[in-house]
Design a protein around this nucleic acid. Sequence first.
DNA 1: TTGTAAGCGTTATCAA
DNA 2: TTGATAACGCTTACAA
Lengths: 327, 327
Amino acid sequence: MDMPTIKDVALKAGVSVTTVSRVLNNRGYLSEELKAKVYGAMKELNYRPNELARSLSRSKSNIIGLIVPHVSHPFFGELAGHIEDHAYRHGYKLLLCNSQLDKSKELDHIDMLRSSRVDGIIMGSHTLEVEAYNQIHLPVVTFDRKLSDDIPYICSDNYKGGLLATTLLVDRGCRKLAHIGGHPHLNVLSLDRHKAFQDIVEQRGIWHTSLHTDINGFNFHEYERLLELLFQEHPDVDGIFASSDVIAAYALKACRESGRRVPEDIKIIGYDGISLRGLLTPSITTIRQPIEAMGKLAVDLILEQVEGHSVAMEHIFPVELEVGGTT
Amino acid sequence: MDMPTIKDVALKAGVSVTTVSRVLNNRGYLSEELKAKVYGAMKELNYRPNELARSLSRSKSNIIGLIVPHVSHPFFGELAGHIEDHAYRHGYKLLLCNSQLDKSKELDHIDMLRSSRVDGIIMGSHTLEVEAYNQIHLPVVTFDRKLSDDIPYICSDNYKGGLLATTLLVDRGCRKLAHIGGHPHLNVLSLDRHKAFQDIVEQRGIWHTSLHTDINGFNFHEYERLLELLFQEHPDVDGIFASSDVIAAYALKACRESGRRVPEDIKIIGYDGISLRGLLTPSITTIRQPIEAMGKLAVDLILEQVEGHSVAMEHIFPVELEVGGTT
DNA sequence: TTGTAAGCGTTATCAA
DNA sequence: TTGATAACGCTTACAA
């Protein structure tokens, strides 16, 4: 009752295992007749080659590891979806890991992926020291973080995005701006969004304040607390640049619940361009990153490295201002 | 520069590979001294056992396959997160597949998972004929669908949920109800939500209408079209029972944009209890399923079967009405 | 064109 | 207690 092996197929087809393997991999010259015979045996036995054995033998698993903070976060959910889809199209499988931004979990996951002999790792989470990533010795691609000179990274044009967002708020007349973003100790490139914010407001002489989530990020309840804090200390803020659409959505909610009219009393702009923003009213003005293209490129960069090609290190995607109803 | 193998460790520790394997798996009696020696060699070499080889040898991969329509859908994203988390805690890895409700893709994924010798498959998508699943010959668990008498399934108490939802709308005074749910040809248990709706409205003599998404479901744009259609044909609907929170969110949006006040002019209730509903204003009234517990159970049921234990077939989770601001 | 046999890195069965 | 050695199911020189 066990799964049939290549040996069973060989036996039934009356050929050697080598021949079956050849048919399986379409290597060398094979007569149509032979092929038919072997394929026939396979069908009859409902044979499925054992990928574990193939992987072991070829020293190649055709598996890509993906580590993200939380798949349940809309941005990473979308990203993971596109990555899986693109990997699948290229005959690769996806081993999914949620780090929850927990260092030991992330380390465990990396260890596990290496033990599983994945062909490469896409890191959407990177809470460890740079050293940890340099020791991976596998094709790696990161999102939104430059780890070293030889690990390619993918990000949106964060500074430009921050610029567009802040400029829009200022141009629409905001004079008391707040920025809400990730923790500065998370050494991520998205901090450039804040840098741009800072540059613009100072250059234009606009009053401003900045809040950031705690180092474990992505805690939705914390977003609510943060906004409460903001409105308590600066009730007259008239513009918010949120570093993600999810934060922006919470900002919108906080405004509504505190009787602030959006966009009349206060304007809000987010970042990411997650497709779920379409379910909000008004739809949030945002800086859109090309999430699908970024996910695809991550897979491509892994595959290129797997094939021994060298790849460019820096991959900055253009962003686009998408005006919604909150500005 | 290749990864060290058990042989290298044996050599460096001055023992046989058998002994190293014993230490690795903590089998038999091993003196502390021996252990120290072997572990030392492992550390020195930065050795990681090759899981492909182990899996092949033990005929057990410690991988669970998960097939969902879209991880990017909030419900499945949350579910996948919990499943990964629980699997990880038990030393299992997660191979993630998005079927996008595409039959051939789902079939491919099942084939791929079988070839990869996963220890079990959790099906959150099931667009194929029952026969296809019976041929899997692996531990399987499904969400929201009864496939046969020997494939365990997990679902929320759909009928009860539909009852609670519909009753609430009626009790709050709605007299023209609409239900929006999945396509009836998708043979899923969540259709019971609609059945309950139907039963209640007929029993209470309430005017009602029912819309459903197309068979490929989960197309957010379609939700918008559906609502447009609803309001066009029945502008005076005063209560909507949406079969998911995402649909409910779109309903809320459509109401807002068409000048309907929620909950004064029209009431809305959703289903699922996704955590993202917290970012809407007002927060959507919903029927909450215990998503985390359901995800955990899915993993547990796979593990039980892997260990050769028999498991109960039916796992219906209680639902809870969570009153928000839309009713 | 087809087959034999070694090897991929483990675990497991026997002996010693 | 420890160690040869044969699996596990496949690929791939090398021969024929």
